[in-house]
Write a protein that binds this DNA or RNA. Structure first.
Lengths: 205, 205
DNA sequence: GTCTATAGAGCGATAGAC
DNA sequence: GTCTATCGCTCTATAGAC
């Protein structure tokens, strides 16, 4: 059992605490979130939180892992690889970029990056449960594209990472900083199209 | 004059405060940094800080802009564009990725991203003084490569952003999260080489 | 397990002497 | 301008009743 506390993981109070804590941490960050505000948001007393989680840092770690578990890889929206590489990449590209710029994804990214320097274990757990896992799915896709000879890919890992980082372009960073809409110089569609174009030019048979 | 306080911008105490605050904010983040710790780091009293900066948020904004001013675009290390597109891209790629993964760059990125949701003005100022300015330099480079017909670039902005985001790949994110060395699946050299290869394949005459 | 109440420490910001 | 001293508040975590 990998439960972080000796308590029932399906306890309704525990779930309420996690839900309340997610909102607080995402909105205000780790340090600026008080256990009182979590208690209020979860409609429980502060002492109840400490009955389920040994400290604020422990609660934070549980929240992050909890969020990762409802993540991209579990949504099973990954499209099938057909016979058209460009169409497959476009579909996956739109899916990935949509996910990247979701407000919740951005909020998680902000708090984890901010705290990773002070909580290295959390950063590792986040990597394993989040980006690391999503990357594996993308590796599989590129390997399949190579196996079906729809693309010629000497190094599927380099290709998959290139595609992912082309997608996670300027639009992601602008949203992450909360800049006014329109600051980015490439739209959603242009970003996906540019990424797909580059990959196709580099790896098309 | 755009000085944030009515005090002499070259005051030695003011400089000491900024230097001390940079270290504190970068190491501990915004919320976890106390004005007392800044005072200690700067070897001044807390009241002196408030004589130069009206609030903690004001000090933080001044620190971020101060850091951006000693940034990439002011170092004038940008290489000349010769007659070899691949060599130029490699040189610039190594320069950019080196800059991206500097500890100070990572630390600034962490704190600004973390606070941007709560201090939108700061995010805008950071964008203008930092990434926005660096991007312009990169646009110029790609336009020159196009003008010299070393590359065929229909859209220099898309090409420059693609190159930048290919470079700012997995290695940057792993360092940002403080993951153990070796977690990333592509080395520094492989990242630069992959980025240059993709751009060359897409835009070579 | 869950609550109310509170301990004990640290915070941002200021008053007043010099 | 710079200091020491302190105010008023909020914080994490716990004690003790039920």
């Amino acid at each position: 059992m990998t439960c972080t506390t000796p308590h029932a993981p399906n306890s309704p109070k525990r779930a309420a605490i996690l839900d309340g804590a997610v909102k607080c941490f995402m909105e205000h960050g780790y340090a600026a979130t008080s256990m009182d505000s979590v208690a209020t948001a979860a409609c429980v007393s502060k002492a109840t939180i400490y009955a389920h989680f040994s400290s604020k840092a422990d609660l934070f770690a549980a929240v992050i892992i909890h969020r990762c578990e409802m993540d991209l890889t579990n949504e099973a929206h990954w499209p099938e690889v057909g016979t058209d590489a460009r169409a497959s990449l476009s579909k996956v590209g739109r899916l990935l970029l949509s996910f990247f710029i979701q407000p919740d994804t951005l909020a998680i990214h902000r708090v984890v990056v901010a705290e990773s320097a002070r909580q290295p274990d959390l950063a590792n757990a986040f990597w394993d449960a989040g980006p690391g896992k999503s990357c594996s799915k993308l590796f599989d896709l590129f390997e399949e594209l190579g196996r079906k000879e729809l693309l010629i890919i000497p190094n599927p890992i380099a290709a998959a990472l290139s595609f992912a980082h082309l997608l996670k372009g300027e639009i992601f960073f602008c949203r992450l900083l909360g800049l006014p809409e329109g600051t980015e110089r490439m739209t959603f569609d242009e970003t996906v199209e540019t990424a797909v174009d580059l990959i196709m030019k580099a790896y098309a048979p």
